[in-house]
């Protein structure tokens, strides 16, 4: 589904990603772990098409197409979803309105009819149960005045409604208490299917107790230095990132 080959990217002339390789198949869950500042959000942003980053080398193949040729909205319409580390507030625009506009933009892209208000609301109500979100948040402006946990749940609600093929969750666990973490993880697990794939970006192993990954990758200083199965996460927890940082040579990603 997704293949990243030797991806290099820079911000304001500073190289952040220094040759990332990664292959994700449908039905898989991958975890990307790494210390702060190692380039995890940069990788997520590059995949989603954020303009800030300049790609200097490498390629990304998504569903057989060159992902980097697509605009951010085309990527979204093609089923790529990014749950933001810092969800953005849009004052005055209700959550429902925003979500409906998003869903209908994607439907339009696929030549489907727009969903009317009644059908849309039914869909949202159903998906809201998945993340146990308070109904009143629907009519509030997008993310404005939401608690950290509410923002993260809102991201997963959007994911549930938009039904993406490839989801990248950037630190969705940060700022969540243990109950909220369980709810969010539960939601992500329920949305997982053999047809889609999920990349979970996290700093802590904690989340991976709830979302069990097929593969774990360690990103340090813009390179994936080690890949393995879920046990790698436990190993990291015990040894810390210093252990990974000591791996001078990047390890070939064999999945």
């Amino acid at each position: 589904m997704l293949e990243i080959r030797n991806l290099h990217a820079e911000v304001e002339g500073k190289e952040i990603l220094k040759g990332v390789n990664l292959k994700v198949e449908a039905g898989e869950i991958h975890a990307i772990m790494g210390p702060n500042g190692s380039g995890k959000s940069t990788l997520a942003g590059v995949l989603a098409g954020r303009e800030l980053y300049e790609i200097t080398e490498g390629e990304v193949i998504y569903k057989g197409r060159n992902l980097l040729d697509l605009s951010p909205e085309e990527r979204a319409c093609e089923g790529m979803f990014l749950a933001f580390q810092y969800p953005v507030e849009i004052p005055g625009v209700s959550n429902t309105y925003f979500l409906k506009a998003a869903l209908n933009a994607i439907r339009k892209y696929h030549g489907l009819e727009e969903l009317d208000a009644v059908d849309f609301l039914a869909l949202v109500k159903e998906k809201m149960q998945l993340v146990e979100m308070k109904p009143e948040l629907l009519n509030r402006p997008v993310n404005e005045g939401f608690s950290g946990g509410e923002k993260k749940r809102n991201e997963i609600l959007q994911m549930a409604v938009l039904n993406p093929t490839l989801s990248v969750l950037d630190e969705t666990d940060s700022g969540l208490d243990i109950d909220a973490l369980r709810i969010v993880a539960n939601g992500v697990n329920k949305l997982h299917s053999p047809e889609n794939a999920t990349i979970v970006v996290t700093h802590y192993q904690r989340l991976l107790n709830y979302i069990v990954p097929d593969r774990v990758h360690v990103l340090v200083d813009g390179r994936i230095v080690k890949s393995g199965d879920k046990d790698l996460a436990f190993h990291l927890e015990e040894q810390g990132y210093d252990w990974a940082r000591d791996l001078h040579e990047p390890v070939e990603n064999e999945s």
Binding site: A48, G49, P72, L82, V88, I90, L99, A102, A105, L162
Partner: peptide, 12 residues
Amino acid sequence: DQIFYCNQRGID
């Protein structure tokens, strides 16, 4: 940021 957030959800 706001525009990118919308773009990422499919909105041009």
